[in-house]
Design a protein around this nucleic acid. Structure first.
Length: 483
DNA sequence: TGAAATGTTGGGGCG
DNA sequence: ACGCCCCAACATTTC
């Protein structure tokens, strides 16, 4: 009896074995399964993974390969053109079915559509089938009464909640039948994902990529912070959030698993649980928007913002990148990002507002920096966040909502723990001036060992002046329309 | 998922 | 006792 043709499971950002519908489908065929990862960053252009994401991907792939090995299987790694790689693997192994889980960013949607069409049309007749692993509700399944996409979060999320409980997560396959002969594979290291200059020490200390790390993070969150999430989520100085974002981005855990774990562990009517699930909802909303408005990573959703009079200043942008703006809460955030590849969400809003409104630099510059430095860089979430801050997106904060970095710092980091951790040169300052050191009396600065302009920069813009300038720029945009 | 300016109210000091 | 003023506290509006 001839050996049955194997099934290829094409891993992308679904780097897990549990609740992986495409992988389960492959296993259910009762045939050998060949798990494959194809490194083709050019196909995701212009949003190929940035430096921090590549670091994460390297480690996530290593963990996935180990987990597959425990189930009698392997991870086959290739690079280059995806379609060529899949065809080559089908030819080498005799595989006649390829499975994968869908993604929703424009470049990948186009690539995957082309791959599926090409595989089916070829004389080889390879079948391709895709599944949903990444979302509670795929973008085209949720529509307004008019049949269009949602542009406001609250009705979107109500509509999602009305869909009822999402399906129970699927169990991980116990065993993956190996092929009679394994095709050749690159090593993870051969993909060159790790930085050549070793800036990744802080990342390694902060994170445990991989499916096991994802479930560890979820368990830690459910054992503590979820119980006070509604209030503590806004406090960057404490661990009040789930820190699941990079795990979700790489699909080491899926939203269905998170949903059911939260519902099981908490009172689903509690404000804390509802607020957390609403944050999962924002992730859904971001994917909904990116799918329906695929130009938004580059262009503002609200067209009048194409005329907004942005500034250009390499000096100011550099000060923001490096956390040397002179505003402690902003600088703390930018340094946390640089060191750990992550930034607390409250602080993301503050630093983003500062770039866009105080410095008047284009939100796309901020999105690019986040893209390269965040381990959770996700095109849907990043685009939504930056357009929201700039006031040019869906459900956007009005442009005149300008965060005051002094008040925001004092309000959300009342003990100063966050700023003192990430801006240690200011740690000796008393709380009263910690968020505005330029107003501290000379004696206070001296006893804290701070020489402004030497140990820590003076503010690169004055808050009141910058606020007035931002409002003036908005005014000019409005005038440009009527002119 | 703001901040600042402006408006209103009411208690208390004081002539 | 009464009216006036001050201003903190809160509410509203404006950017």
């Amino acid at each position: 009896m001839p050996t049955p043709a194997p099934v290829l499971h094409w891993f992308r950002r679904d780097l897990r074995l549990a609740d992986n519908p495409a992988l389960c489908h492959a296993v259910e065929q009762g045939r050998p399964v060949i798990p494959v990862f194809i490194h083709a960053p050019g196909e995701e252009a212009p949003w190929a993974p940035g430096g921090a994401s590549r670091w994460w991907l390297h480690h996530a792939l290593e963990r996935l390969a180990e987990d597959l090995a425990k189930r009698g299987s392997r991870l086959v790694i290739r690079q280059g053109d995806t379609l060529d790689a899949i065809r080559a693997l089908c030819a080498e192994t005799g595989a006649s079915l390829v499975t994968w889980n869908r993604l929703y960013d424009p470049a990948t949607v186009a690539r995957d559509t082309a791959v599926k069409t090409a595989l089916r049309e070829r004389e080889s007749g390879v079948e391709a089938v895709s599944f949903n692993a990444a979302l509670l509700h795929e973008p085209w399944t949720i529509a307004t009464g008019q049949g269009g996409p949602y542009k406001v979060f609250t009705p979107f999320w109500k509509r999602c909640l009305a869909e009822g409980t999402p399906p129970e997560p699927l169990a991980a396959p116990r065993k993956l039948a190996p092929p009679t002969r394994w095709p050749e594979s690159l090593s993870v290291g051969a993909l060159g994902l790790l930085p050549t200059i070793r800036w990744d020490g802080g990342l390694a200390q902060a994170w445990a990529p991989g499916e096991k790390g994802a479930h560890g993070a979820l368990r830690q969150f459910l054992d503590g912070p979820v119980g006070t999430y509604d209030t503590d989520r806004d406090r960057p100085g404490i661990v009040g959030t789930s820190r699941l974002s990079p795990h979700l981005h790489f699909g080491e855990i899926g939203p269905r698993q998170v949903w059911h774990a939260v519902r099981q562990k908490t009172d689903p009517r509690s404000k804390d649980a509802q607020r957390f699930l609403a944050e999962v909802g924002w992730r859904e909303f971001a994917h909904h928007l990116l799918f329906h408005f695929p130009t938004t990573p580059e262009a503002p959703l609200r067209p009048e913002f194409a005329r907004f009079p942005w500034r250009r200043s390499a000096t100011d942008l550099e000060a923001w990148h490096r956390g040397r703006t002179g505003y402690p809460i902003v600088d703390a955030g930018m340094r946390e990002l640089w060191t750990t590849g992550w930034m607390h969400n409250r602080v993301r809003m503050i630093v983003a507002s500062f770039l866009v409104k105080h410095l008047l630099l284009p939100w796309q510059e901020g999105a690019r920096w986040f893209w390269d430095t965040l381990v959770d860089a996700d095109l849907a979430n990043n685009t939504l966040g930056w357009q929201w801050t700039a006031g040019c997106g869906a459900d956007a904060s009005p442009y005149f909502r300008i965060f005051n970095p002094i008040l925001q710092g004092a309000k959300f980091d009342p003990s100063g723990a966050y700023v003192r951790r990430w801006v240690p040169e200011l740690s000796g300052l008393p709380d009263a001036v910690l968020f505005r050191p330029w107003e501290a009396p000379p004696s206070t600065l001296a006893s804290a060992g701070v020489r402004l302009g030497v140990d820590y920069p003076l503010p690169i813009v004055d808050h009141a002046t910058a606020r007035a300038r931002a409002l003036g720029a908005l005014e000019r945009m409005g005038q440009a329309r009527s002119a």
